[in-house]
Design a protein around this nucleic acid. Structure first.
Length: 777
DNA sequence: CAGTGAGCGAGCTTCCGCTTGACTT
């Protein structure tokens, strides 16, 4: 007979609590929300005051049945879901769905999973806070209304299956706006001057400083160097000051995603799934949190570890305040469950992420680092500008001993220790070399997944549990795409003054290369423009913050939830009807110019399967159409680039009596020879490849084909082949790995059969489509 | 498996937040 049933949200949490509470308590998990608005239709009875139509989610039927059975048997049911809006709603849904009698139901909350905290919580139970529950209901209903009324407008006016919502549409707007900022950005050249000096009485020590002025033109830079020729340089000032640096706060979901991307190269969803695993194994606390708070237990454990390993001087207890909008702080910060575990068993990725979390947590409880910063200026007797030199030495490393937070700015190397020679004001500095290097101003960076999450967090849109899924929705809808960019190579001028001569050299450099950055697609730009025009209030970056304050008022009893929703709904729904009726179908179409060869108009537009360029009007029976390449946008493609697309397929000539052509297909650029297709190698370009190079590819390909068969057993239909990843066995359309240490040349038919049999049942190729694969343009 | 582009027009798509699995890419 069960005395007490405790229900929490997460099964991992249930397991640890059960251990703490002992045999008088059974602890179960609800696996998050158990009910939601009806899936079909709107699921809201608007006429009668926005009454939600809740149903048990299909994947929760089993859990609910189990919880029902357990709660019927229990004498007291403790609802211990999180202490935030969503958690309170979960408690209420449980009470309703399980039909719990008030007399045997208690609502409890605790902030850390320790015996003391839980026992204390049990001593002070309370009722379900209905104001908070109604605030959640308002949130849920509003999101459903916005999503389910806006999306159909897009189906009608733009394309089926598109989506819009309070969070995703604003996140998309960020990406689109950044792209336009970049397109509008005009890169300007300038000259940055650096000088290397030798103190007259310090011998060999060299000091390099940056001029506090940039020159717009080469002429001005040359003029400056010219003046330096006869200039006498001295130390203008020396300033020393002690600065202290404090460690970064412990991880939240968002900051973990950012650091894991920068330091480990993980995507946002990768980070979350590795963290999930660490959590389930009991190595870290909960990974979906917006709080930087550490429990007393953790602060104490960190103190012990730091004093024992580094000494008391390295320790400083700190409690961090969470500074972001709308944070609900139902959980702790992300930290190791046991600080004493400096390492854990697991995969390389798990170890890496754990290590990052461990360092960040420990560092957050360590003393400030103290640095001595020295600023020296070097002045010349006939120039108004001055060179500034900065150096720093670490007086006390403090938290730097374990962790340094990284930044998105790749060029910052400012943290490096730089020791300067002991010079004083008035000392003569001999000029060694002064260089003026041509640089270009750079556009703002495109968002990475992690930096987009950071921005969303700042705006208060989305929650720790939805950051990664929201980004993947934007991908699935075809709104955005992750891209690498090679960057452009350009030649820059470097002027250097050494001795009495100014020498000019040309230097090649590439700039603007990007990896895994988010770019909008044409459809994403179109949807954003359309929504901004028709629903500016929803697209406003402050919309969520505005409704959040209303939800807070509902939670504190100052507003009635369905009246608040009604106030929003009336004007919103009118706008929806109006737009459905009056707004013209939206599409992207841009005239690029005229084709010099035919004199026909060239347009870029959206086609049935993606964006295309077209030579000739729509009604021209001889019009030519071809798809845009990855990274090209209707909004910004040039006439020149568009015409280039029509150069494919290209005929290269004849090889062994067959015509050789090349083009770009679904799987990248290829050469076609007879019926055979051969992919181009990295670095080869279908627009420029020569017949000779293509012939070489074909020869290699044929040679490889000859080597493909290692052994064939015609009777059984088994063959041993050479594949991309090495030798393998092929039988009845399925491939089998050859065990390590086996020489494929020596395999017998029998051995092959054994390998096939022992590899177990092969699953038939799944017919389920991957939602992430989209038709290429 | 390596480029298309109209034609009939049924029936469907969609939100945000809580939680894990099952299962490929």
């Amino acid at each position: 007979m069960v005395e007490n049933l405790v229900i929490v949200e997460s099964p991992a949490k249930a397991k640890t609590i059960e251990k703490i509470l002992g045999k008088d308590y059974t602890v179960r998990s609800s696996f998050g929300h158990i009910r939601d608005l009806a899936k079909k239709n709107l699921g809201i009875d608007i006429e009668h005051g926005f009454i939600p139509q809740y149903e048990i989610s299909p994947d929760k039927k089993k859990v609910v049945a189990e919880l029902k059975a357990a709660s019927d048997k229990a004498s007291v049911v403790w609802l211990a879901s999180d202490e935030d809006r969503e958690g309170e709603a979960i408690a209420w849904h449980l009470r309703e769905t399980l039909e719990l009698e008030p007399s045997k139901t208690r609502r409890i909350v605790f902030h850390e999973i320790t015996k003391d905290a839980i026992l204390h919580a049990i001593e002070v139970p309370r009722d379900v806070d209905m104001n908070l529950v109604m605030a959640q209901q308002a949130r849920r209903v509003l999101d459903r209304i916005v999503g389910f009324e806006l999306s159909p407008i897009l189906w009608k006016k733009i394309k089926p299956s598109l989506s819009a919502g309070r969070v995703q549409s604003v996140a998309l707007r960020l990406v689109v706006e950044r792209e336009r900022e970049i397109a509008d950005f005009k890169s300007r050249p300038y000259f940055r001057v650096e000088g290397v000096f030798v103190p007259e009485n310090e011998g060999k020590a060299r000091v390099s400083g940056v001029l506090d002025h940039r020159f717009e033109t080469r002429g001005e830079a040359e003029e400056f160097l010219d003046k330096c020729r006869s200039c006498r340089f001295t130390v203008g000032s020396v300033e020393k000051k002690e600065v202290s640096k404090c460690p970064a706060p412990p991880f939240t979901t968002s900051s973990l995603q950012q650091e894991a991307a920068r330091k480990c190269g993980f995507s946002v969803s990768q980070t979350m799934s590795i963290a999930q695993h660490l959590y389930e194994s009991g190595f870290i606390t909960y990974m979906r949190t917006d709080s930087t708070t550490l429990s007393k237990l953790a602060i104490g454990a960190a103190k012990n570890w730091i004093t024992e390993n580094f000494g008391a001087g390295y320790h400083k207890a700190r409690q961090y305040k969470t500074g972001v909008k709308g944070a609900q702080e139902a959980h702790e910060a992300i930290r190791p469950t046991y600080i004493a575990n400096t390492d854990i068993p697991g995969t390389a990725a798990e170890k890496k992420l754990y290590n990052l979390i461990w360092k960040r947590t420990v560092a957050s409880q360590m003393a400030d680092a103290r640095l001595e910063k020295t600023d020296i200026t070097i002045v010349g007797d006939n120039i108004p500008e001055c060179f500034s030199v900065t150096g720093s030495t670490v007086l006390f490393d403090g938290f730097l001993k374990v962790y340094i937070e990284s930044t998105d700015d790749e060029t910052s190397g400012a943290d490096e220790e730089k020791i300067l020679p002991p010079v004083k004001e008035g000392d003569v500095m001999l000029r060694d070399v002064i260089t003026a290097s041509e640089k270009y101003t750079v556009h703002p960076p495109r968002y990475s997944e992690a930096s987009l999450v950071k921005k969303m967090e700042e705006l208060g849109i989305g929650r720790p549990s939805t950051y990664a899924p929201t980004i993947s929705t934007l991908h699935q809808r075809g709104y955005i795409i992750r891209q690498d960019r090679k960057g452009e190579e350009r030649t820059v001028t470097v002027l250097s003054l050494k001795g009495d001569n100014v020498v000019s050299t040309a230097k090649k450099e590439t700039s603007g290369s990007e990896k895994g950055r988010l770019c909008p697609e044409d459809i994403g730009m179109l949807v954003t423009d359309f929504l901004e025009q028709t629903f500016p209030a929803i697209m406003d970056y402050g919309f969520t913050a505005k409704v959040e304050t209303a939800f807070d008022k509902i939670a504190s009893g100052k507003l009635v939830w369905n009246k608040t929703v009604a106030d929003f709904y009336k004007p919103f729904h009118e706008r929806v009807e109006e737009t459905m009726k009056e707004s013209a179908p939206a599409r992207s179409r841009r005239v690029l110019g005229t084709d010099p060869a035919t004199g026909k108009t060239v347009v870029a537009r959206m086609g049935r399967y993606g964006s295309v360029v077209q030579i000739g009007e729509d009604d021209d029976p001889e019009k030519r159409i071809t798809g845009l390449e990855k990274g090209q946008l209707i909004e910004s493609i040039t006439l020149e680039d568009a015409l280039k697309l029509f150069a494919l397929p290209r005929t290269l000539g004849e090889y062994k009596g067959e015509t050789v052509t090349c083009s770009k297909g679904k799987y990248g650029p290829y050469v076609k020879y007879g019926n055979a297709y051969v992919s181009l190698r990295r670095g080869q370009d279908p627009y420029t490849i020569t017949l000779d190079a293509a012939a070489k590819l074909i020869e290699d390909h044929e040679a490889q084909l000859k080597n493909k068969d290692i052994k064939v057993f015609p009777d059984s239909g088994i063959s041993v082949l050479n594949g991309r990843f090495g030798p393998y066995i092929k039988h009845a359309g399925a491939n089998y790995r050859i065990p390590k240490g086996t020489d494929p040349e020596l395999l017998t038919e029998e051995q092959c059969k054994e390998i096939i049999a022992s590899s177990g049942e092969r699953k038939a190729p799944s017919s389920r489509k991957n939602p992430n694969t989209r038709k290429s343009k």
